[in-house]
Structure formats: C-alpha cells, structure tokens
C-alpha cells in the first residue's frame, strides 16, 4: 500500500514551513518511532517521526524548500516492491507523530 506524508498543522497560526533536514533517502526503511524529517516554523523545529513501519520511496521537497500546510512532502510504501504507479492519485496518510521543540 502507498502512503503520503504531508506538512502537518503542528503549530497554530503557521501556514507554511521550511524543510530543514531529511533523515533518510529513498529506499530507506523506517520503523515506528524513527525520525523522518525535521521541519522549521518561524520559531520551532517540528520533528516528524514514523508512527508505522514503511519504506521511503520518494522525496517531493528538498531541504530549504517551502511548503504550505497539507502539501505532500514524501511517499512511502509497506515494502520496497510495492508498485508506485498509483501514487499520483489518492494515497493513505502515513501515520506520524511529531514533537515541536
């Protein structure tokens, strides 16, 4: 199954974030609790952690890029063999947890 990671509405009032750092490249496997990406708001860093296991398949916004809340940042799948051709359409949301520091 294919999953999408979108910019979370982690901090009230924030409409747009900057991608600070990815913690894995396409092909990397994430387990529950692993740090995927750090996002930057005007005053905080949002650490996005996997809430389920999965494989990072595609990164859609590089470090330094700006994205608005809800915009897709990356695609994941259950296994590295999953067909990604359906990813253009709907994908389920990856379960994530985030810490705001």
């Amino acid at each position: 199954m294919i999953y999408q990671l979108s910019v979370p509405a982690a901090v009230p009032g924030v409409e747009e974030i900057r991608i600070l750092e990815w913690h894995g490249e396409p092909g990397a496997t994430f387990e529950n609790g692993d740090l995927i990406v750090e996002l930057e708001t005007h005053k905080a860093v949002v650490e996005v952690r996997a809430g389920q296991s999965g494989v990072l398949r595609a990164i859609l916004a590089d470090a330094g890029d700006w994205r608005e809340i809800g915009v897709r940042l990356a695609l994941f799948s259950d296994s590295a063999a999953d067909d990604m051709s359906a990813a253009e359409g709907d994908a389920g949301d990856l379960v994530v947890e985030f810490d705001v520091t």
Binding site: V11, G13, E15, E16, R18, H42, K43, W66
Partner: peptide, 8 residues
Amino acid sequence: HKRLFPAP
C-alpha cells in the same frame, strides 16, 4: 507584530 512572524 506577533501575528506576522509565522508567515514567510
């Protein structure tokens, strides 16, 4: 203004 800070 405090409310201007979140917007880039």
